[in-house]
Simulated scan of single mutants.
Amino acid sequence: MSNLETNTVEERCESHPDGGGIQVLGAREVPLGGPRAMPVRRTLPQRDRSLIGAWCFADHYGPDDVAKTGGMNVPPHPHTGLQTVSWLFTGEIEHRDSIGSHAMVRPGEVNLMTAGRGIAHSEVSTPQTRILHGAQLWVALPASAQDAEPAFETYAPDPVVRGGATVRVFLGSTVGSTSPVRTFTPLVGAEILLEPGADITLDIERGFEVGVLVDEGEVQLRGTTLRWAELGYQPPGESLVALRNTGGTRARLLVLGGEPLGEQVIMWWNFLGRSHEDIVGYRREWQSELRGAAPADPRFGTVEGYDGDPLPAPELPNSRLKPRS
């Protein structure tokens, strides 16, 4: 998914000091696009936290009535230095990219695209979709993999049922389930359904930090209540993630965790790099490819099959990056 904000700012993403307790983060609403601007709720990055492990971007959207908003129609756009992780609850999205991948994103099946040195892709909700509901997530690649070759994978995890909890592990390992999808740093990603009154404890690496994003209902993370669209952050040091549904309806949530990246990265628009100069260079190359002036070995390539023009990059800010407090 693209970041379609026109007033895009560069952000230096880094870990923040932890107080040892659960931090509760709200979301801000951002228009994604479409004829009437489908809204999404963005919980990462934000002022109080920009990374959870290597997870660096989280958009949570829907249930969205496609007839009212026009659904998702994101033209071809570039990425560098990251992996996109698409997870749907309802609906269907058509994915096309510049390495020739053509796939449908469906509920219960993760689609992971590795940008590495550079890739372009488009995302369009299919005509039969009536309600669109899901999450679009990004993972920062470590410096050692920043220029990895682009790739695309899909995986449909089998559900693990424990009492009133159903878990689908789409990245990493927990509750005895392991995803085969490749990541470049230790990560975990899972969807959990919790029936009213149900609880579950996930096993994780003690060095992981963890985010819990609530999609439906209300849950407690280590005794701290998280409500709809809130993201709860658990710092490293625990080997368990204890979750309980304290509400009267089913709860659905995403668990996103990983080993702290330990590196500073800069995100601007859809690019992730290590310096201001990286971002300037990526933008220059994308704009050059749009003008048909690409070199013999273009960084981003062409998305075949999309009916429309690619997205031009926004203007860069007039000043260099300044670290966020």
Rank of each mutant, 00 (worst) to 15 (best):
G292P: 05
G211K: 03
R206H: 07
L290G: 02
T225C: 00
S288V: 12
L272G: 10
A296R: 15
Y233I: 15
G305L: 07
Y282K: 10
I279G: 00
L272D: 08
R291P: 02
L254D: 04
R299Q: 10
W269P: 06
R284L: 10
L243W: 04
V214C: 08
D203W: 08
L221F: 04
L254N: 03
N270R: 12
W228S: 06
R299I: 04
G257P: 05
Q264T: 13
A296S: 15
A293H: 14
D297S: 15
A294Y: 13
R250D: 11
L243G: 08
N245E: 01
R252K: 10
V214A: 05
G237I: 04
L254Y: 02
E289A: 13
G292M: 08
E209Q: 11
E304W: 12
Q287S: 13
G301Q: 11
E285D: 14
E230H: 10
V210R: 08
V280T: 14
P298T: 10
L261F: 02
A251D: 01
E289H: 10
G262V: 03
I279Q: 01
T302N: 12
L256E: 07
L213I: 01
S275R: 03
F300W: 06
V303G: 05
E216H: 13
G273C: 09
L240S: 12
G211W: 04
P260L: 08
V210F: 05
G237Y: 06
L231C: 08
R284N: 08
G273I: 08
E304F: 14
I266F: 09
Q264C: 15
G257W: 01
A251C: 00
P295R: 14
R227M: 04
Q264A: 15
W268Q: 07
S275L: 03
Q220F: 02
E263Q: 07
P298W: 15
G207D: 10
E259W: 09
P295D: 12
L226G: 01
R283G: 11
V219W: 00
L231S: 04
Q264R: 15
V241A: 02
E285M: 09
Q220G: 10
T225I: 11
R244P: 01
D203H: 09
H276N: 12
V303I: 09
G305T: 05
P295A: 13
Q234F: 08
Q220P: 00
V265K: 07
L240C: 07
W268G: 09
E230I: 10
G248N: 11
Q220I: 03
L243K: 00
E285R: 05
Q220N: 11
G217P: 03
G232F: 06
G257M: 02
G257I: 00
F271N: 02
A296L: 15
E238V: 09
F271T: 06
D278M: 01
L226A: 00
E263M: 01
G308I: 13
L221P: 07
G301M: 11
P295K: 13
D297T: 15
L226F: 06
Y233P: 03
T302Y: 14
D297N: 15
N270M: 05
A242P: 00
Y282A: 04
L272V: 15
T246K: 04
D307H: 13
W268H: 02
R274L: 01
G207S: 09
V210Q: 02
